[in-house]
Computed example of a mutant assay.
Amino acid sequence: MEKLPPLNAVRAFEVAARAGSFTLAATELGVSSAAVSQQIRNLENWFGKQLFVRSGNRIALTDAGHAIYPQTARALGDIAAIGRRMLEGGLRTRLVVSVPFSLAELWLAPRLAVLLDAFPRMAIDVRVEDDPVDVVRQNIDLRVSYGDYHYPALRMVRLVHDDVLPVVAPDFWQRHNNGASGLAEVHESLFIHTNWGPNYASHPSWADWFAASGGSRAPDPSHGRRVGLSSLAIASARLGLGIALGQRVMARADLEAGHLIALSSVSVRLGQPYCAFMAPAKAERADVAGLVELLSKTAPSTWGSRAPQDRI
């Protein structure tokens, strides 16, 4: 057998690198900070490389630390998965899926319904939470995130790179366009703006959409309706509260059913794709692979009888 590094030291390194602190790592491992520091020194001596730069109570990975962290995290995740399978007698009865708030109802739930047709007795645990989450320690089978950069130690599959386009309830448009020939003439109070929060800067705004359509209008969010979730923007438009920049994959069912219409074929792509993350040991499971395949399916190229209307 090939010579292995000290496994307790590897575990201390992985936790410290993930937590960004020897103190937090000590709390998670149930030992003292000095014990964590000693384990890290043991591993550094074994490799003959410095893994952390220490500055007072702060630590940062060196180039060598960055080089080994993804593999150590994957390896420990695989070992943990083996232990869980053995303890459960090789049987898995629950699929644990973690998603951001905006994706749960309009995007994930319909696809889970399809998955349950194939696995009718499957128990599913859907956790709605923002990044970051500890996929390994929380025993999450599949995490869906906006962006491909959150979990470098896990296997990643790009699901869909969505775009937004203007959507509105047909009755609302008939009542409130006031004879306007297009969105450039609509009163600012009729626009629904999505406030993505302080952690995101790559989501398109109404100003971005007008620029993509060849205009220069920039509706003022303070004069319109504002919501905190992209799914809530679509629901608000469906309920006749205004005109939203709806994400295509989330608005699909409402557009096909005629609850919403698209006012233009012009769309703006989101800054990042939606991606699935999973431990390598779980990626080949039939339920996980089946859900990844379902989530990878994008919206159809047509909207049934409700084709987008160019109302720029």
Rank of each mutant, 00 (worst) to 15 (best):
P5M: 08
P6A: 03
A9S: 15
V10F: 11
R11F: 01
A12C: 13
E14Q: 15
G20D: 09
F22H: 03
T23W: 10
A25F: 02
A26F: 12
S32V: 14
V36L: 13
V36M: 15
Q38A: 13
Q39E: 13
R41I: 14
E44H: 06
F52Q: 09
R54N: 07
R54V: 14
S55A: 05
G56E: 04
N57L: 10
A60P: 01
G65C: 11
P70Y: 00
P70M: 07
A75P: 01
A81P: 03
R85N: 11
L87V: 15
E88P: 05
G89T: 02
G90R: 05
T93R: 09
R94I: 14
R94T: 15
V97C: 08
V97T: 05
S98C: 14
S102W: 06
A104N: 03
E105N: 06
L106T: 13
W107F: 15
L108Q: 08
A113S: 09
R121L: 13
M122K: 06
I124A: 03
I124H: 06
V128L: 13
E129Y: 04
D130E: 13
D131P: 12
P132E: 04
V133S: 11
D134W: 08
R143A: 13
G147A: 01
G147I: 02
Y149P: 03
Y151M: 10
L154C: 06
M156R: 15
R158Y: 10
R158P: 05
D163N: 07
D163F: 00
V168C: 00
H176G: 01
N178F: 11
A184S: 10
V186M: 12
S189E: 14
T194K: 02
P198G: 07
Y200M: 10
A201F: 06
S205T: 15
S205R: 09
S216M: 02
R217L: 11
P219H: 05
P221M: 06
R226V: 02
V227P: 05
V227C: 02
I234S: 07
Q247Y: 01
V249F: 03
V249L: 02
R252N: 03
D254T: 08
L255V: 15
L255Q: 04
S264H: 00
V266N: 00
V266E: 02
S267V: 13
S267E: 08
S267Y: 06
V268Y: 02
L270T: 13
Y274H: 11
Y274D: 12
Y274P: 05
P280A: 09
A283S: 11
A286W: 07
V288G: 01
A289P: 00
L291N: 01
L295Y: 04
K297I: 13
T298N: 11
P300T: 12
G304S: 08
A307K: 12
Q309C: 06
D310A: 13
